[in-house]
Design a binder for these strands. Structure first.
Length: 400
DNA sequence: ATTCCACAGGAAACAGTGGTCC
DNA sequence: GGACCACTGTTTCCTGTGGAAT
């Protein structure tokens, strides 16, 4: 009997790879990608049209669930406009930021400033009042007579930040044109959440949503077409079973028609099939891929938690079904064991809420009459997943 | 009907960091 | 070098909650 290592290497050497180019199987892969979004592309282009006519465009709001291609479509159209416009006479500048990546409103403005070419000296990261950052941004636009298209992806996060800090950044942004003598600023907001406008000031809403485009969810047919196009390029011919592709489309259609999800599924399924050295991707591979993606998501989330949040998750794990007070007691024990100063119960309650929102822990309010009201917590994921995620954390070595 | 428990969770204050500006 | 700013991560204080027990 031959060595198992040799066996694997030999068969890998002889077998041909079914996955030719996995870069095509990333959702954001653009070249020659067809979005099946003709109507929406038309509307977005029309609302940005004033730029081509050398006048100020209106602000635009784009809605759609994740994986509906809205960001890709907006970026594609703006880069096309940039190609067409005579840059010497009418310099347009596309600025793209994702509000989710910025924890503060100033951070978002600074990120825009960097893309406008303002360096650390002209626009420092810290120390400036928000109003001052904004002023410097507008000065640059004015001085160079730029026509800036400011795309803010996941603008709902910005709206939340603003309600938290009571700043009027959004209002100033939507009214920036009134302060500009030369050049212009058009705002393109992209949002997954159709209801985010509810938390905004009425004045902001009216100027922000001068134009609106809604990206509807993809249906199974559209997802199948999108997958077919990508699979044709990324995989070797006839290496994906039609039923496997259909399953990917069906699974993704169930999650609000998410094309990103569909493409991830077929990519991971392809990787699993290749590892098994199968010559075709089957429905079994797709199911395995779906499970793997879920598990990875949970583990990555757990690994990214700060130490005390990890301790809170562990406290819930060690005392399943425990009330807030009991979880706090378990948490304090863990702090003792790991030589950490425990945080206040108020803060731990807050952390429990945060963990609950992420879906890793389930909390249920229980009324116990004379014994008061509390929340009972339990993990929604296998304890094994938690152990695996935390095993590399040296500070948790003794308690895991 | 009233009391009372064990919290939930909002608001505000605070400490500390890392900066700018004049 | 002192006033000022943004921001994070907390603590402190406080009010509200709803059903079992009385």
């Amino acid at each position: 009997m031959s060595d198992p290592v040799d066996q694997i290497i030999d068969s890998a050497k002889d077998g041909k790879s079914i996955l030719k180019d996995r870069s095509i199987l990333h959702f954001t892969h653009i070249p020659n990608t067809i979005f099946h979004r003709d109507a929406e592309q038309k509307k977005v282009t029309q609302s940005l049209l004033p730029i081509l006519k050398h006048s100020k465009p209106s602000n635009l709001l784009v809605y759609g669930k994740p994986g509906t291609g809205k960001t890709l479509v907006v970026k594609k159209i703006i880069s096309k406009i940039q190609e067409r416009v005579d840059q010497s006479k009418f310099p347009t500048k596309l600025i793209y930021t994702n509000a989710k990546n910025e924890s503060t409103t100033t951070g978002l403005l600074i990120s825009a400033g960097r893309q406008l070419g303002l360096d650390e000296k002209e626009l420092p990261m810290t120390g400036l009042a928000t109003g001052e950052v904004f002023k410097r941004l507008l000065d640059r636009i004015d001085k160079n007579s730029l026509n800036m298209i400011f795309v803010i992806d996941e603008i709902d996060y910005l709206a939340q930040l603003i309600t938290k800090t009571h700043k009027d950044t959004m209002y100033q942004l939507t009214r920036a044109n009134e302060r500009l003598k030369h050049g212009s600023l058009a705002l393109v907001g992209i949002s997954n959440d159709l209801k985010f406008k509810e938390i905004l000031d009425a004045r902001v809403i009216s100027s922000l949503s001068e134009e609106e485009v809604v990206f509807t969810n993809y249906n199974v047919d559209q997802l199948t077409k999108i997958l077919n196009e990508r699979v044709g390029e990324a995989f070797a011919p006839d290496s994906v079973e039609e039923s496997a592709l259909g399953l990917c489309a069906a699974m993704a259609a169930k999650v609000h028609g998410d094309a990103r999800r569909a493409i991830d599924l077929i990519r991971v399924a392809g990787e699993i099939a290749e590892r098994e050295q199968a010559d075709k991707v089957t429905t079994e591979h797709v199911r395995a891929a779906s499970q793997k993606i879920e598990e990875n998501k949970e583990e990555t989330a757990l690994k990214s938690y700060p130490l005390h949040e990890k301790l809170v998750v562990m406290a819930v794990m060690k005392a399943p079904g425990a009330s807030t007070g009991e979880v706090y007691a378990a948490y304090k024990d863990l702090c003792k064991a790991t030589a950490q100063d425990p945080l206040s119960q108020r803060r731990v309650t807050q952390m429990l809420n945060e963990v609950e929102v992420s879906g890793l822990v389930d909390g249920r309010i229980v009324h116990q009459g004379m014994h008061g009201r509390t929340k009972k917590y339990r993990l929604t994921i296998p304890t094994e997943t938690v152990r695996r995620a935390f095993k590399d954390d040296l500070s948790l070595e003794d308690v895991i």
